[in-house]
Design a protein around this nucleic acid. Sequence first.
DNA 1: TTTAATATTCAAAGCGCTTTGGGTAGTGCA
DNA 2: TGCACTACCCAAAGCGCTTTGAATATTAAA
Lengths: 342, 342
Amino acid sequence: MNLKQLSQLLGLSQTTVSRALNGYPEVNAETRQRVLNAVRETGYRPNRAAQRLATGRAGSIGLVMPTAPGYDSDVHFGEFLAGLGDAAAKHEFSLVISPTHPDEEVAACRKLVASGNVDALFLAYMRERDPRIAMMKSLSTPFVVHGRSLGIPADYPFLDVDNTAAFHDATRLLLQLGHERIALINGPQHYAYAIRRRKGAERALADSGLALREECIQHSPMTDEHGFRAMQRFLALEEPPTAVLCSSTVLALGAVRAINMAGLRLGADISLIAHDDVLPMLKPENFMVPLTTTRSSLRAAGSRIAERLISQILKLEALPEQELWKAELIVRASTGPAPAGK
Amino acid sequence: MNLKQLSQLLGLSQTTVSRALNGYPEVNAETRQRVLNAVRETGYRPNRAAQRLATGRAGSIGLVMPTAPGYDSDVHFGEFLAGLGDAAAKHEFSLVISPTHPDEEVAACRKLVASGNVDALFLAYMRERDPRIAMMKSLSTPFVVHGRSLGIPADYPFLDVDNTAAFHDATRLLLQLGHERIALINGPQHYAYAIRRRKGAERALADSGLALREECIQHSPMTDEHGFRAMQRFLALEEPPTAVLCSSTVLALGAVRAINMAGLRLGADISLIAHDDVLPMLKPENFMVPLTTTRSSLRAAGSRIAERLISQILKLEALPEQELWKAELIVRASTGPAPAGK
DNA sequence: TTTAATATTCAAAGCGCTTTGGGTAGTGCA
DNA sequence: TGCACTACCCAAAGCGCTTTGAATATTAAA
């Protein structure tokens, strides 16, 4: 069933039917009702491809999903997606995901835009001097970056969490508790958020005349296993840290395990602060020793970005171009005074 | 830059250029090369909406993502998506995700198909007598179900893990070890896989003249927290179980925590077997006490389903309509003989 | 009763691509 | 030389929708 058939059925022109369906004012109320009824009865659905071709709009927002066989999927991706999805669903947008090898993201973005399949693009997993930004600016498709790049001017639309501040504050708390040997279990080194978190910690330490020792830093994908290994490595050091920062509760999971296994008491012998993306699967308050965290909901961020993108596509109210969210520092039991004599 | 402009630039007809690009044989090799060069120089990309309209093909496979504000996202979804993505990327397909309220999946599927946005549909989160199956069978769009429904004939394309057998085998192992009081921490009650897993366990118990006690069953979303709570509840019973089955390593995570907290030794005082979806984030072999599991990769399943869908769309080789994968039972340290005197 | 608005409706022109149904040369063979 | 092929290329017809520019019917104002 297509427009033509439907309009013939009704004895109306395609124009009128189309207008009736799309809410244009110049249609008699009674006629519109007739059309609507016919739609219900016939189950007619406009063909989106044709709609797109005619309007130039796709009704969907695109994102590139870095993936490849052997490349670990990222838990955080799903959570973020849920946020995008919530907002998209509200406006009847769909998400077009282009699964792509992590090394070919730039090309994949360009392709996705050129395909005409999407009205806007969402960019994530930002790196230092990320080439995707210049590329997107040269096109006219709206986009919002989740996070911020580094080393290039921040003159593009983004939504980021103030990672530097979050880790600065967390580190300062540890310092105030008397910790001096602090370690960091971070995400992969090439991501901007990881760099910023590290900087935040380093700055807080520097403010107290201390430094983040090279051997007390771990950069790796955010899985339980990497958290565990990193913590084990730290604990084996000649001068092991008395406190550790984790870039994710998933990393913290492994770290806590290593701590337990070493017979140390979390919050007493060693303190831990994790960044909490609010993964429903893993809540910091439910750890055996509840975790002190810097919290910022990934899902909320996804949702907000989708809102911004859609409001731009549909030319609704103007939303801020750039947003920097503060993470909340929530103190629970995993942090305590530095053990004496260390 | 569109086909028309490109063909004018080359002094060729749109037909020829189109054919050159799509690999049709009736084009002079030299001409084709000229076209290809021009494409490279101009950066021309065919408009997908137009392609779709003309071919009737969308170049993408669709899925409905159940989501709503306040509705927890599911870790397993992301992992599955990665699998779909791997295969999709290989054939230059994209994924169209329609985020939908969990109660409106049927309507969302119908809409997604009718939109012409997708060439095939992937169905998951199967329930008992799932209405989506009849609906999809009435349409002519290819689809593959991940899992199987229950209570209706299995006469549709699916890929499922033999959940009944997996939990049957796991339970039998526990019985062989002398356990008689066995508990089950399962996924939400309305999902077919959860029902099958329960049945598997019940059957194995019945074979030994035992039963799964009602108070030893927990149905809930698969998060750490639910695993923890369930285990705590079990341990508080008058006659607590000596072994527990978990439907996910995420649930096991919480369960193990409760076990530790109760001062019990996993694999000695209490045994645990979890179903392992091979989430990179959380590996059973890395638990403090490595977990005995029934293993079946979610990602591999996703990938395989995408392959099947695509081969059907593109009319490549015929792949099996129905597949039932066996889960491997992998014994690690979390299972041991039932404690004496219990 | 006219005339000017206003309210409805329509025919037709695209949107950019694929594909059908011819054409036109050039080649080999009788 | 004539004929059947083959190789290559083209014009034009859609795909199903939106939107422009007009036409027609209705109503209000003069």
